[in-house]
Simulated scan of single mutants.
Amino acid sequence: MTQQASPSTRSVGLGRIIVAVYAVFALSSTARAGYQIATKFGEAPVAYLLSALAAVVYIVATVAMARRGVASWYVTLSAVLVELVGVLAVGAASALAPSAFPHDTVWSGFGRGYGYVPLVLPLIGLFWLWANRPRRGAGAR
């Protein structure tokens, strides 16, 4: 008998790897934004505030993914959708108006500085969330 996918199974197997990658991005983007804001804020405030926004999104996604329950699933979905919109919007803006982004953000160039992982990660996250969506009668906690 196979176990039905539910929010209670999100933090095992592939889910654990995805949570770990999000945790790495939460840590790295927080460190990057903190350093940039503390040392060079006047050079590119918009870029550095966007890096801080990315950090907050990665932190929220990581914590929500690691938790069980339907509410955490919806918080994770919201964070991953914000992440996808952010990387697409900032990526497009930085490509169309590079002078407006004198310094890179986590999402500049669609995550070019991070090997395009910021572009691919929300797509993987959405697929994973869809596969582990809450189901009626699945006994989600």
Rank of each mutant, 00 (worst) to 15 (best):
T76W: 02
T76L: 05
T76P: 05
L77S: 01
L77R: 04
S78D: 07
S78C: 11
S78P: 09
S78Y: 09
A79E: 03
A79T: 09
A79R: 03
V80I: 10
V80A: 01
V80Q: 06
V80R: 01
V80T: 06
L81R: 12
L81Q: 12
L81W: 12
L81M: 11
V82E: 06
E83P: 01
E83M: 12
E83L: 01
E83H: 14
L84W: 06
L84E: 00
L84S: 07
L84T: 00
L84F: 01
V85M: 10
V85P: 07
G86W: 02
V87S: 02
V87Q: 10
V87G: 06
V87N: 08
L88E: 10
L88N: 13
L88C: 15
A89D: 12
A89N: 13
A89F: 15
A89K: 13
V90M: 02
G91C: 10
G91E: 01
G91N: 11
G91D: 02
A92S: 15
A92I: 15
A92T: 15
A93W: 12
S94G: 08
S94T: 03
S94P: 05
S94D: 02
S94F: 03
A95F: 15
A95I: 11
A95V: 15
A95H: 14
L96H: 10
L96G: 13
L96E: 09
A97V: 13
A97C: 06
A97Y: 14
P98W: 14
P98N: 13
P98I: 15
P98D: 14
P98M: 14
P98L: 15
P98G: 14
S99D: 15
S99K: 14
S99I: 07
A100Q: 13
A100D: 12
A100Y: 08
F101V: 09
F101G: 06
F101R: 08
P102K: 10
P102F: 04
P102Y: 01
P102V: 05
P102C: 09
D104G: 15
D104T: 14
D104Q: 15
T105L: 05
T105K: 07
V106Q: 01
V106R: 02
V106K: 08
W107C: 04
W107H: 02
S108P: 03
S108F: 08
S108G: 12
G109P: 06
G109D: 08
G109W: 05
G109E: 03
G109L: 03
G109Q: 01
F110R: 03
F110D: 04
G111H: 05
G111S: 07
G111P: 08
R112T: 09
R112L: 13
R112H: 14
R112M: 13
G113M: 03
G113V: 00
Y114K: 00
Y114A: 11
Y114P: 09
Y114G: 10
Y114L: 07
Y114V: 00
G115P: 04
G115A: 07
Y116A: 04
V117W: 00
P118D: 06
P118Q: 03
L119W: 10
L119M: 12
L119E: 08
L119N: 11
L119D: 14
L119Y: 08
V120N: 05
L121C: 00
P122T: 06
P122C: 03
P122G: 04
L123I: 09
L123F: 07
L123E: 03
L123N: 02
I124G: 10
I124C: 11
I124R: 09
G125H: 06
G125R: 00
G125D: 01
G125E: 03
L126H: 09
